Simulated assay, not measured.
Amino acid sequence: MRRFGLIGFPLSHSFSKKFFTQKFAAENICGCAYELFPIENVELLPGLIAQDQELEGINVTIPYKLAVISYLDEIDEAAAQIGAVNCIAVKRSNGRLFLKGYNTDAYGFEESLAPMLEPHHTRALVLGNGGAAKAVKYVLNKLGIPFLVVIRKPGSETFLYDRITAEVLKEYTILINTTPLGMSPDYDSCPEIPYESLSDRHLAYDLVYNPEETVFLRKSKEKGAKVKNGMEMLYLQAERSWYIWNSK
């Protein structure tokens, strides 16, 4: 039995387990299972891997995306630059264990965003500067798209919400919400930006995927903006994990 799983704490619900369980069934992938490992401390990770010799791949969620790095033998370029790992490949050879970390969030976001970009989408506003923003900033840098990070309180290398004007929005035509505003059950909240200044030249991307259409996306769409939620990114990063686990 090939085993894969998700570590984090708590793990009250999991997209990953549902996704992979359905994938294995739909694609007739036999001899594979995906489990949840709600470990209360990241220090339990080595023991988990040692005890389960069939464990070949691990997804990582809050709060361990940074903490797991010290337990790995190697991390890929994206994970190193972002400073977060959400996928681990577990390799065993001649009794030796080798753990390599990846960040598939960056892959998922880039593959999801890129097809929507048009020539006038040259600058971006990244709304929020938490953990979810890290992969977004990495991808924008990779694509050569200048951006401003927008937050509510003054900070270095950031931009305040009350400074977003109609003039700013003429120049910054990509808006990416990395905050939890609008996420279930907080359906009525949204980033405080002048939505009346948006147009069909804008692209609004929300990392939130539940609900399918947040207030941020609805208000942006009402002004003609192209919109997209984070569901495709989620599927793409999961598929990327599967690709990594099956690569030699």
Rank of each mutant, 00 (worst) to 15 (best):
A166N: 04
N41I: 01
I82L: 03
P46S: 15
I193A: 06
P194K: 14
Q81N: 10
K248L: 12
A25E: 12
F20C: 06
K221W: 03
D52C: 05
A67Y: 03
E56S: 12
L207E: 10
V149D: 02
K18S: 13
D186V: 02
S70F: 05
K18R: 14
C87A: 13
L207W: 09
A124L: 02
K170G: 10
F20V: 06
S184H: 15
L125S: 10
Y64R: 07
L125H: 13
D206G: 04
G224I: 08
M1G: 06
K221H: 12
F9G: 02
K170Q: 15
G155Q: 13
K142V: 06
A67C: 02
C32H: 06
E110A: 10
Y235S: 14
P10T: 09
L48T: 05
L45V: 01
K153Q: 15
H13N: 12
L127K: 07
M233P: 07
D206L: 08
Q51A: 15
Y161K: 03
Y102K: 09
L169M: 10
K100C: 09
I176W: 05
A79N: 04
G155T: 07
L11Q: 06
K142Q: 15
Q81P: 00
A106I: 12
F24W: 10
A80Y: 05
N141M: 04
G108S: 01
G144V: 07
K153R: 15
S247R: 10
G5C: 09
A67L: 08
N177Y: 06
T104E: 03
R240Y: 00
M183T: 01
E54P: 01
K17P: 00
G155I: 01
V126K: 00
Y195M: 07
D200Y: 01
I145C: 00
V85N: 11
N210R: 02
Y235N: 15
E239K: 04
V60R: 00
K226S: 14
E27W: 01
A84L: 07
G101S: 11
V227E: 08
A133N: 09
I62H: 14
E77Y: 02
G31Q: 10
L55Q: 09
T158Y: 03
G95T: 04
C87Y: 03
T158L: 02
